[in-house]
């Protein structure tokens, strides 16, 4: 049986009180609850405060380029689809610099769980607006306030027919843990956008601000596979902010389209040299 200690204990470089601690705890708890041992898990990340998370877990980790958590996660999943693959990223990393990868990973639908630490700011570079920063928010670069429309990750994902779309909150760890568990169990790409207070640079979207607004989406009659209803729900933002699973569409994952993977992951499936030789013979 897997226990929390298996995932290790580490000093972190995060600010005291940061929402990232809640997300780390929830991810760890979810992996333990699902009895996934560290050697079965790969966490890929980009660059940002959020993307430091793999450094604080004892499992297979990959800390890559800014904006590029998803392509290496996809590569690793293709190489060994028996791994539980998580991509940990930030709002700037995933929706800005790596926005293109987000769109195309949703289309491809690999069995990866995306956890986006959405603090509505660039934390690591000390507080510039991110793609999800609110209109009017002042920063040291947006001195007159943000005027670009914030990106709505959930609406975007639903419009692209992402196979699992959800939102969690770093201030509600038990809820977030359950959400991550379901996201990991889901076969296909699952998005968990996590509201994450950045106590140092985002003075607008604080723990208090979020706590006063969030509520659980689970209500009788909410159908998880109703895309239009889910889209409508995803537009709700302001005085009330829904949390939970918005949309699920079970469909074949990327790996399932790759025939060669049917007989097991690539590392067990060393290509047969006879086949290569036969092909070469055909050339000469």
């Amino acid at each position: 049986m897997v226990i929390m200690d298996d995932y290790g204990k580490f000093e972190t470089a995060w600010c005291p009180g940061c929402g990232n601690f809640g997300i780390l705890k929830a991810i760890k708890q979810a992996l333990v609850d699902l009895d996934r041992s560290p050697d079965e898990v790969l966490i890929a990340s980009g660059i940002g405060q959020s993307s430091k998370l793999p450094h604080y877990l004892r499992c297979n980790t990959f800390n890559g380029l800014h904006g590029r958590s998803l392509p290496p996660a996809t590569g690793a999943k293709v190489a060994n689809h028996e791994l539980t693959v998580l991509a940990v990223t930030g709002d700037g990393d995933c929706y800005g610099e790596g926005g293109n990868h987000f769109l195309h990973t949703v289309r491809r639908n690999p069995d990866i769980t995306m956890i986006v630490h959405d603090n509505q700011i660039y934390g690591l570079t000390k507080g510039q607006a991110s793609p999800t920063s609110e209109i009017g928010m002042k920063t040291k670069v947006q001195t007159h306030g943000v005027f670009n429309m914030p990106l709505n990750p959930l609406s975007l994902a639903i419009s692209l027919d992402c196979s699992f779309v959800s939102r969690g909150y770093a201030g509600n760890i038990p809820h977030l843990t359950k959400l991550i568990e379901k996201a990991i169990q889901h076969k296909g790409l699952s998005l968990v956008d996590v509201l994450q207070p950045c106590v140092s640079f985002n003075k607008l979207n604080t723990f208090k601000w979020y706590s006063e607004r969030v509520y659980d989406i689970e209500e009788p009659g909410y159908e998880l596979n109703d895309r239009v209803k889910a889209f409508e729900k995803s537009l709700e933002w302001g005085d009330r902010i829904p949390l939970g699973i918005f949309y699920v569409n079970e469909k074949p994952s990327f790996e399932e389209h790759i025939e060669v993977l049917e007989s097991g992951p690539l590392y067990k499936n060393i290509p047969k040299t006879e086949l290569v030789n036969k092909l070469i013979d055909g050339f000469i």
Binding site: L124, T125, K126, Q128, V141
Partner: peptide, 10 residues
């Protein structure tokens, strides 16, 4: 933004 050039942006 990117450290150590972000101040130029700012």
């Amino acid at each position: 933004p990117i450290t150590p050039a972000s101040e130029i942006l700012q």
